[in-house]
């Protein structure tokens, strides 16, 4: 079975659980930015939790299938239409052979997840079907004309238990390894400020705008390993939260690290929206 993409929207990529364990070779981990939403999509179809889904950036995807298949959209609530009929968000829907699935622009949030029963079955690269947008390891980004193979599935979807989605709130932060590069109280300043989400934010990092964080040490930090959720502060003092496609090493000091369970929110913040931090 194959999905035929007519329009990928602004950016659509294939994502599974990523390829952790290769940072020492310079390979980003990749994987869905909103992991709970991607997991929910697979659960609603009874897929293997490791099945690959499509990550849509501001919707805009249009595709057909050469055979009937169950599909579901989770994450940012974008309108779902199948051959002109409105369908539900976070609900398994039948896409008949030849019908056109259209995902509109979400009313809020940024990233939606489209799962298909059986999972997107593109060829894995280094053990994962995720596309990383920093080094472009993995399958190519989805384009108009892309043909995406779908794995085998059986019968109607049998949803796994579907827990309540996590609630949004301030991003909890732990002190980072280089907090001593900043003025005393820099972590408190981070937590006392409402930051604007910068337009250059992407799968690599959430770029924040606000009063610059003051460094007390100048000079260069020797490049060192970076973790998911690291709040890195370049010389301009404006923090960047490292997301799934972050470079495995970096040379700017890390003031704080975002609690992993809160990172999904970074996937859904739009440029111009505000974000707050609080101590974990």
């Amino acid at each position: 079975m194959t999905l035929h993409v007519r329009n990928p929207g602004p950016l659509t990529t294939v994502q599974d659980r990523g390829r952790p364990g290769l940072a020492h070779l310079g390979v980003p981990r990749a994987g869905p930015l909103d992991r709970p939403a991607a997991d929910l999509a697979n659960r609603l179809l009874g897929n293997d939790p490791a099945a690959a889904v499509l990550e849509l950036t501001l919707g805009g995807l249009e595709l057909t299938s050469d055979r009937g298949v169950w599909v579901v959209l989770t994450g940012a609530p974008a309108p779902v239409e199948i051959s002109g009929t409105v369908r539900r968000h976070a609900h398994a829907e039948w896409l008949a052979a030849g019908d056109v699935l259209r995902i509109g622009r979400p009313s809020s949030g940024v990233r939606s997840y489209l799962a298909v029963a059986g999972g997107v079955d593109v060829e894995p690269v280094l053990g994962s079907r995720s596309t990383d947008t920093l080094a472009w390891v993995g399958p190519p980004r989805v384009e108009a004309g892309s043909a995406l193979p779908v794995g085998d599935s059986e019968g109607r979807p049998a949803p796994h238990d579907t827990p309540r989605p996590p609630a949004p709130g301030p991003l909890r932060v732990h002190p980072g390894p280089r907090a001593d590069w900043f003025a005393a109280g820099a972590l408190d300043a981070l937590c006392a400020t409402a930051y604007g989400v910068g337009a250059a934010s992407n799968r690599i990092g959430l770029r924040l705008e606000g009063p610059p964080l003051e460094r007390v040490r100048t000079g260069e930090l020797a490049s060192e390993g970076m973790v998911l959720g690291a709040v890195q502060v370049p010389p301009d003092g404006r923090p960047v939260v490292f997301l799934a496609d972050h470079p495995p090493t970096g040379g700017y000091p890390v003031l704080a690290v975002v609690e992993p369970a809160d990172l999904w929110q970074c996937a859904q913040l739009r440029p111009g929206e505000t974000v707050r931090f609080r101590r974990a």
Binding site: P20, G21, A23, H24, A222, S223, E224, G225, P248
Partner: peptide, 12 residues
């Protein structure tokens, strides 16, 4: 992850 760098090793 075991990530060596110029002066450090990250264990993640």
């Amino acid at each position: 992850e075991v990530v060596p760098a110029a002066e450090t090793v990250l264990f993640d």
